[in-house]
């Protein structure tokens, strides 16, 4: 089931990092097989913006949100950062604490992280630098107004 959503206010750990931002999920490793909503299989490094948009269009439960990076601060955990996003059309402010190398998918650009060299070193996933102003792909439930 999709990971729980984050709420605004106090900094929350990213749901994809379970309870603490100290681990990277296995599916970011280069070569990982990803299944799109139409059943097509692609490698994580080959994914394009359209793959997420089309998969969300097919999904009856999920919808794509645009989340703009507003701030990037040093995290409370070593090797972590706190990223403040403006989420969705209302630019709701949400903060997440993630590892420096945690990749986000930027519209029209692909995988990006706060420390691309570290991402490439650990995951063999080529990565751009995540910057303030980048618009990332995120998800929301269609049932949420």
């Amino acid at each position: 089931s999709p990971a729980p959503a984050l709420a605004p206010g106090p900094v929350q750990a990213s749901p994809s990092l379970s309870s603490s931002p100290t681990t990277l999920p296995p599916f970011f490793m280069r070569g990982s097989i990803i299944q799109l909503a139409d059943g097509e299989l692609k490698r994580v490094e080959d994914l394009k913006t359209e793959d997420f948009i089309q998969s969300a269009e097919i999904s009856s439960e999920l919808k794509i949100d645009s989340s703009t990076v507003e701030r990037i601060d040093t995290g409370q955990t070593p090797n972590a950062v706190i990223i403040q996003f403006g989420v969705g059309e209302h630019k709701a402010q949400v903060c997440v604490e993630v590892l420096l190398e945690y990749p986000f998918f930027v519209f029209g650009q692909g995988w990006s992280s706060c420390c691309p060299d570290r991402t490439t070193q650990l995951l063999e996933l080529s990565c751009a630098k995540l910057c303030v102003g980048d618009v990332c792909v995120s998800l929301t439930l269609r049932s949420l107004r």
Partner: peptide, 25 residues
Amino acid sequence: NVEPRSVPVFPWHSLVPFLAPTQSD
């Protein structure tokens, strides 16, 4: 030659986070 048996397949939506606040605005 040995065929790989189980290659994990991950759903597309596990790659991107849910960031939208869940409380009512």
